[in-house]
Amino acid sequence: MEREQILKDINAIFIDILDNEDIVLTNETTAADVDGWDSLTHIQLVVAFENHFGIRFTTMEIQGWENVGAIVACISSKC
């Protein structure tokens, strides 16, 4: 799957889960840049990605992402 499309999809998931229409993600976005992206909502996001793309992440993957680009790369490697 194209990385650009993945970024679009996860942007929509961020908007839904964090209930914030204004979120615009780039590959460089980190948790510090997004209001409400904390350790608990992170889990919601992770599960939403899994359900949306029909994939599972390993525990190490979830804990290892530095920014949105890393999430996109990880998803891209699975679908």
């Binding site: 889990i43 599960v47 979830i62």
Partner: peptide, 16 residues
């Protein structure tokens, strides 16, 4: 039960 969620958060019920 969602293993990675459990490891990360100490929650034993999956979000689903």
């Amino acid at each position: 039960f969602h293993t990675s969620v459990y490891i990360s958060t100490e929650m034993v019920l999956s979000l689903n």
